[in-house]
């Protein structure tokens, strides 16, 4: 059974490339583009890996992560955070909120695929 990855991202073209790459790598990919919907989807059917953009409409990634960590079902959910703000305080905020990994846009394809693979492996062990 292939690992399920939830992509939480509101940029259409980025979603396109990530979906393409992850499906090619054999993941089961689902997509959400709005903050509250991401939270709802992650809580109802927790994926194996959550790829979470910080700048989402209506609820930002930090808030979503905080709420996920507060719920027993998702407190140990592997989360990879994406942000277009590459500043150090963004990384710190992400890790403090409970992100497992943090990647700054623009990223190399190999970088994000390896990161997701790492998290999925940890999850399945």
């Amino acid at each position: 059974m292939s690992a399920r990855v939830l992509l939480a991202e509101d940029e259409e073209n980025i979603l396109t490339s990530l979906t393409f790459l992850l499906e090619r790598a054999g993941y089961d990919v689902s997509v959400e583009t709005e903050g509250p919907k991401v939270l709802k989807a992650a809580l109802s059917t927790p994926p194996d890996v959550l790829v979470l953009d910080v700048m989402l409409p209506d609820m930002d990634g930090y808030e979503i992560l905080r709420r996920l960590r507060a719920s027993p079902a998702t407190e140990r959910l592997p989360v990879l955070m994406l942000t277009a703000k590459g500043q150090r305080e963004d990384r710190e905020t992400a890790l403090r909120c409970g992100a497992d990994l943090f990647i700054t846009k623009p990223f190399a394809n190999s970088e994000i695929i390896n990161a997701i693979g790492e998290l999925a492996e940890k999850r399945l062990q």
Binding site: I14, T16, S17, F20, A84, T104, P106
Partner: peptide, 21 residues
Amino acid sequence: LSQVSHELRTPMTSIRSFSEI
């Protein structure tokens, strides 16, 4: 500047990702 950076990084992410593909 932070906003500009953010706004520029988003299209560049797509460009980089697709060109790598």
